[in-house]
Design a protein around this nucleic acid. Structure first.
Lengths: 200, 200, 200, 200
DNA sequence: TATGAATGAGAGTTCATTCAT
DNA sequence: TATGAATGAACTCTCATTCAT
């Protein structure tokens, strides 16, 4: 402890700033997100922010990155796990479930990130998620290719991911009057029909 | 709009402002969209903006409305036309085609609207489009219900529209390396599989 | 009529503008008094205002002048009439009454003129009123000088007018909870005591 | 005030702003009083104003408050002191003197405040002053009521204060050609006559 | 290192006035 | 003469960033 007192303190300050940034984003929205607000929320002075972050954008960047990495991690984990341990519609259901769960986990931040931030801000992080899931899906499709009716696993994976993601996203954010279970069922049906599986 | 322009000159000015607004949006992006920039781009003085528009937001509103009305009009027209004149996969293909075409028509503005504006700005307009298409789709599903394998046309229509929209949107904006024809084919397969049609 | 059709129309327009100016002043207050508003209220175009008035100030000037001339006329008339036809406290009461009546006649405009306009705007007009009343008062004092206990009619007249005016003005505008009759009585007592008259 | 300045530097800045506000008011008048002018006069940037003042009005408010508090303090102090230590005309003279002195102390600012500001801006502050003096006067009248010839101390005090205030104010601002001594004498006579005292 | 005072460019907006029609 | 579109300087206010302490 003695060795790195300032480093430990620094790290704590950085965390305080990031958490404050997250809160300000959720509470006040993106348009009123300002370095001064973040500084106040973090209990430090505006000048001190610049000891740890080069500018406003870099605070945002990290808050955003963390969020999407979280979602990505969770979803990919579920996918890796379920896809290998099961096949057919049970596997599909597990993945869809993981996707919903990933997005449901912090809807307040999700809303701000997807509805208030310029999408370009999320772009790279979000693309990374999509690609990751897409590649895993493609691999999975190739593996169980016997039943597949689509010719190109790449494009099929892309279509699936893009379609599923939006269904999950809109359901979480817009809360249309359909129960989670029903939406999950439809997502499975959509995927299974597309891939040529029989839905029981 | 503040004043209803009666003279030809003022109607021309309003058009110049709106077109300038569109250009500034495309060229400079949403974050730097400012009344002064619009005025310069329109070749008028800042004060003149306020003869016809109550504030910055109302200029944006109209630029946005016009865009989505355009897309909505085109897509719905195609849907109404094609869906009635054909059935099965040809009809589905027509609708997917209309959707793609609608979004392809002004991709630069589409990009700014969907990627840079806070989604809340598009929200109502966009929701109107989605609802319109969803209701048409639901009606269509009910009509040809014989072949339908899904239990609830409402939720099925919603899932379809949300899924299709994102596939079309991401393809237009992200330009993944898949030819239009192939994507269209996948969209049809996705829909047909979901609805239980046989894909020839 | 034929000879001066435009002149007659002009005159009517000028009147419309002045009346509109008065109304805008009363309804919207001085701070939001603008040439555009006046033009709208007068039912003419902003450009036309400048056919008849050189600028915003000159409209205001005339509205103000008219008001104070009105008050001045009424009060002076009463003073001239009453002061000659009676003497002692009855005359004083008449004058005070005239003063109150003059200010009571258009309190809405009075309020705006005295409370919202920079006093400098009223200055000359108001000074004219004060001087007029002061001179009449001085003359009156000189005439009935037998009873007078003050040495200099000029200063005495000035003090009287300034004091009375404010009592009347504040009573009309601030509406303190004293009946008109009582205030009148006090004004008479104040004057009579000052001039050395016996109050019955 | 937005922020409570803690450092000596910032307290100095606040003072500089207020003094600059006072100067701009005196030099340029109320109509051209602008935050930019104040900032320039204070030798600071426009943004710095807003560290300590929420808006333009709040700067004005404090400049105005300070002025009237000063006048009020001085006048009331004189009144409290003199009125108790003496009686009859000497006491009256002291009060009138205090009133004149209070208003004479910063005539340039007094002029702007009373002649250029919408009266509503001074209203509360000014009313506070009037009420304070009126109540002190009423109390004084009740105390020495033996000689009083007026029935209601409240209304009498109000009339006195309103009348006296205007005599003093107009003398300070309009500088009529009467020596201070003479005006004081008349004020005493006016009051004494009104209250039924004998003027020596 | 931490502070918080200070910065200043640039934002949105108004309105008295001008001028082409 | 009358119109109303157009002007543009000036306004109030914000906030990412810097810098003296």
């Amino acid at each position: 402890m003695r060795k790195t007192p300032t480093q430990a303190r620094s790290r704590a300050t950085v965390e305080r700033i990031l958490e404050a940034g997250r809160q300000v984003l959720i509470d006040d929205g993106y348009e009123t997100f300002s370095t001064n607000r973040v500084a106040v929320a973090a209990g430090i002075s505006p000048g001190s922010l610049y000891q740890y972050f080069s500018d406003k954008a870099s605070i945002l960047d990290i808050v955003i990155s963390r969020y999407w990495e979280d979602v990505s991690e969770r979803t990919a984990a579920a996918l890796a796990l379920q896809a290998s341990s099961s096949t057919g519609t049970p596997a599909i259901r597990s993945v869809a479930d993981a996707l919903l769960a990933g997005l449901e986990q912090d809807p307040a931040l999700l809303r701000v990130l997807t509805e208030e931030l310029p999408a370009s801000r999320n772009r790279d992080r979000h693309a990374a998620l999509v690609n990751r899931v897409r590649d895993l899906t493609a691999a999975y499709l190739r593996a169980g290719s016997d039943a597949m009716t689509r010719p190109d696993p790449q494009i099929t994976a892309w279509v699936l991911v893009v379609a599923m993601e939006n269904v999950a996203l809109r359901w979480v954010l817009d809360r249309p009057p359909y129960p989670r279970e029903a939406v999950l069922e439809e997502m499975v049906a959509l995927t299974a029909g597309y891939l040529g599986h029989a839905t029981s």
